[in-house]
Design a protein around this nucleic acid. Structure first.
Length: 585
RNA sequence: CCGCCCCUAGCUCAGCUGGAUAGAGCGCAGCCCUCCGGAGGCUGAGGUCAGAGGUUCGAAUCCUCUGGGGCGGGCCA
């Protein structure tokens, strides 16, 4: 509907240009938008932004534009208002046409091809595989998945990816933690490092190792801790302590056995994460391993490209990247004194690889605590000669859980965090997916667990899903009463839709494609959650005001078609957010 | 100290990228409805858009400064 109005406006503008009233070179941005109450259905600022180019007052130009508009029976009247807005009042027939459109397009209603098949990669979650996902990752998961689905809905070719940090020191700490727990299970007594991974899942992996391999990996605790500097509580440095332990693990287990423990830990956790996300309705096209970047030589290739560009230098025995030349605060190390490349080096290679794969656009969904990282990655892309504007980083703020009016304490360090799995179990997948995307990403999220669980109209998830179930319920009721319902999308009888509630619903239904488009292009799923709540509200209001299964065949047919359209749109919207549309609740 | 983000009704938040009289839910006050699912509906009160300047026909929206809050600032990931 909006597109239709936009066409009328632009054709009127063309006409004035042809008549030399307007200078074609100096046209400002013309916007057509949904008008607010009292200003018709759509409004455009076309006359305001072009008045200078036309050399006449805005209202005067507006009158000329109105005269130049093509005639249509969908328009009731057009008026000039305020400083020079043009307001369109559409006929009821125009709005009614949305019902057959929805019923015909069915689950395609709201989809479009404005993305023109451009390739977009969305990388999200990408949590280190050193433990189960927690509720912080959950928001990134729900947000990234929704953005990806929305972009796909408007015609982009979307590639969903999880970057697996399987090459860093954290993984060594994990493997060593598992081994130490295994030693304890095997009967050794030792002081577990304060910097090691404390969670129960580490015990679980250790138990698997012990169950399947008995004492094969056992070494005496004294031997393990031989020459290891003291831990922090004992007056030492915890980092040096854990690094020394990693060294001992590698020495004592030797390559292949260490590798085995490492892989066991990695794969167990990765499988768990994959399973967790799948049950959350989040599925990836690719799990991209950091290690393959190193092995394929991509990291070295990235470094070489930077070196050729003259963006590298050596200082204090390390290799530095001149990121400050490209807007970063300071230069960054990409290869350490000990010859190891940094995490940042991998990330440069990874983003280089993304663009080499031909994506027109790359979206990273990161936790907001990584925001300082954005300038250096963009700097690297610039230095490599790539276009940094192809990369869009969405920084997702933390979610704070509330239960019983109090913050749920979460300290990631001690392993005392709420896992995504626990959250799912407590509030269910649908509520979790919805609540996570209710706010735009840069907004802190207050996640009210009690509200998410409550089965009341205060809970937006239930309110919306109930609208869907209620339509289904009406249809069941009709079937019980032996009332036949015509499911064909024709427009017969629709002229019986004349109530104010019905007109309001029609207008809201017609807005859905615009909402999906805006939510997708702005990467803001919350626009869709707000819309769905509004639609549900209008439906419930309508339900309370008017009976649908009336005696009058034609009227009943029209109303049933309308609520079928509502059901379809609710279902489509929930689907894009990864929620189910239950037939009864 | 520096950088990024946030500040809109009592609370939680929208505000369609510069438009007309700033909106919704909860809460509060009052009222209606017992009908296809009461897991309702209607009305009302409630605002210096954190503050001050600036940009222009026009600012919650863009720019600068100030205040408050969050998060960062490793040869960690």
């Amino acid at each position: 509907m909006k597109k239709q109005v936009e066409q009328w406006v632009s054709s009127a503008l063309e006409r004035l240009v042809a008549e030399a009233v307007l200078n074609s070179g100096a046209r400002g941005p013309v916007v057509v938008e949904r008008a607010r109450a009292g200003h018709g259905d759509f409004a455009t600022n076309a006359a305001l932004v072009n008045s200078k180019a036309a050399g006449m007052k805005p209202r005067e130009l507006a009158e000329r534009l109105v005269e130049a508009l093509p005639a249509s029976e969908l328009v009731e009247r057009v008026e000039v208002a305020g400083p020079g807005f043009i307001n369109f009042h559409l006929s009821a027939a125009a709005w009614r046409s949305v019902v057959p459109e929805i019923l015909e397009k069915s689950h395609h209603y709201g989809r479009s091809d404005i993305g023109r098949g451009k390739k977009v990669q969305v990388e999200f979650v990408s949590a280190n595989p050193t433990g189960p996902l927690h509720v912080g990752h959950g928001r990134g998961a729900a947000y990234g998945a929704a953005v990806a689905d929305l972009l796909e809905a408007v015609g982009f070719e979307v590639h969903r990816e999880y970057y697996v940090n399987d090459a860093g020191r954290q993984m060594d700490i994990l493997a060593t933690s598992v081994w130490l727990r295994y030693l304890e299970l095997a009967g050794e007594t030792l002081d577990f490092p304060s910097n090691g991974y404390q969670g129960d899942y580490v015990w679980d992996i250790a138990a698997t190792l012990h169950r399947e391999h008995g004492d094969d990996y056992r070494h005496a605790a004294d031997e393990v801790f031989q020459g290891v500097p003291p831990n922090e509580p004992a007056g030492g440095d915890k980092e040096q302590h854990i690094d020394a332990l990693i060294g001992r693990a590698k020495t004592l287990l030797e390559d292949n056995r260490y590798r085995y423990v490492f892989e066991l830990a990695l794969n167990t956790i990765l499988d768990d994460i994959r399973d967790d996300l799948e049950k959350f309705g989040v599925v990836y096209d690719q799990w991209f391993s950091e290690r393959t970047l190193v092995e394929s030589g991509a990291v070295n290739r990235a470094i070489e490209r930077l070196r050729k560009g003259g963006w590298l230098y050596e200082k204090d025995g390390a290799l530095w990247f001149r990121s400050s030349e490209f807007g970063d605060e300071k230069d960054r190390v990409i290869e350490r004194e000990n010859g190891q490349t940094t995490y940042f080096a991998s990330d440069i290679a990874y983003h280089m690889d993304k663009l080499e794969r031909g994506f027109d656009r790359v979206i990273d969904v990161w936790g907001a605590d990584h925001h300082g990282y954005v300038p250096r990655v963009k700097a690297a892309l610039k230095a490599l000669g790539d276009d940094p504007d192809k990369l869009d980083v969405l920084l997702v703020q933390f979610a704070i859980l509330w239960r019983g009016g109090e913050k749920v304490p979460m300290s990631t360090r001690s392993g005392e965090f709420v896992t995504l799995r626990q959250l799912r179990k407590e509030v269910g997948r649908d509520a979790a997916r919805f609540f996570y995307v209710m706010r735009k990403c840069e907004q802190h999220l207050d996640f009210d667990l009690d509200l998410a669980k409550s089965q009341s109209s205060d809970n937006p998830v239930y309110y919306i899903q109930y609208a869907h179930a209620r339509v289904c319920s009406v249809l069941r009721q009709a079937a019980e009463k032996g009332i036949s319902v015509d499911p064909t999308p024709g427009d017969t009888n629709l002229d019986r839709l004349a109530e104010g509630h019905e007109l309001a619903l029609l207008k809201t239904l017609s807005r859905y494609p615009e909402v999906v488009e805006a939510a997708a292009l702005n990467e803001e799923p919350h626009q869709l959650t707000h819309y769905l709540r509004e639609l549900a509200n209008e439906f419930h209001t309508y339900y309370n005001a008017h009976p649908f299964l009336v005696e009058d065949d034609a009227l009943r047919d029209a109303r049933v078609k309308l609520i079928l359209a509502v059901r379809q749109v609710v279902r489509n919207g929930l689907g894009l957010l990864g929620l189910s549309a239950p037939e009864q609740m």
